[in-house]
Design a protein around this nucleic acid. Structure first.
Lengths: 131, 131
DNA sequence: ACAACTGTACTAAGCACACTAATACAGTAG
DNA sequence: CTACTGTATTAGTGTGCTTAGTACAGTTGT
């Protein structure tokens, strides 16, 4: 069963965003491995009863981010080689998320240890290696 | 000098959001302490050359979040007692931010140690206590 | 009591942008 | 040639942000 996505049209988060997030997760968690083909723009659109453009947009952004790759006339495939980012670029991209997390944590009066512990748990959930 | 805010109308982030973020920071960092009065809706609007409604919206949301409190006819003041949240509520509110951070970190191929180190640094920047 | 300040609430309008849809164009494979 | 693939352009629709105007209610000092 290739890529079982579920989208809710009633949600406030746009459809294309839901697709991006779900596909990202599927790839990160290894349920789709490099080289695997994704459903075609039209077939996925038909299955989810949404417009092909919406799928195309999601695929397009994922391609921009290096998660998947497109081959004209063939389809979309999970990227074989991960994008190589500079250290500066990676930090710059992570910074706002880190800022948001800590800012909210401070407002909620979390202790540093609480936040650290929660992070460790989440890191384990994603299977990130220590180093 | 009470609350020097700077907003950029050219930014993609809406004005009311910029206000919220800046005031949150000012309060968190102790530049305004509990009981301190904020500029009136109209005066701040005039100073920043924006509509009073926009300021009112920012203040309103900050009040909803328990950062500041309103007193009819008197003004807005930094909240004297922080909102008390249940443990479940606090975790529920932090969860999506944590999810976003770790998900992005995984995609960027950060190691767990990298993320943890970055977090520690940010926590220190915000002056959060260990426990 | 009055004036001048505070917050609060509501409606309406304009504007920009995000989202989605429809359609047409271009490459690939059998 | 046909039927699939991705790609690009255009257009319609909605929604969020901001502004403006108006009105009402509470507080303070004169």
């Amino acid at each position: 069963m290739p890529l079982d996505c579920r989208i809710s049209t009633g949600s406030t988060t746009p459809i294309y965003r839901q697709l991006i997030d779900q596909i990202r997760l599927v790839v990160l968690r290894g349920r789709l491995t490099p080289g695997d083909r994704l459903p075609s723009v039209r077939s996925l659109a038909q299955r989810l009863v949404i417009n092909p453009n919406t799928v195309a947009r999601a695929y397009g952004e994922l391609a921009r981010d290096g998660v998947i790759e497109s081959q004209q006339g063939k389809g979309y495939f999970v990227a074989t080689k991960r994008q190589v980012y500079t250290r500066a670029h990676r930090r710059r991209r992570l910074a706002p998320l880190l800022e948001a997390l800590v800012s909210e944590a401070a407002l909620l009066d979390f202790s540093a240890d609480d936040v650290t512990a929660a992070l460790q748990e989440k890191l384990r959930e994603y299977g990130l290696e220590p180093s």
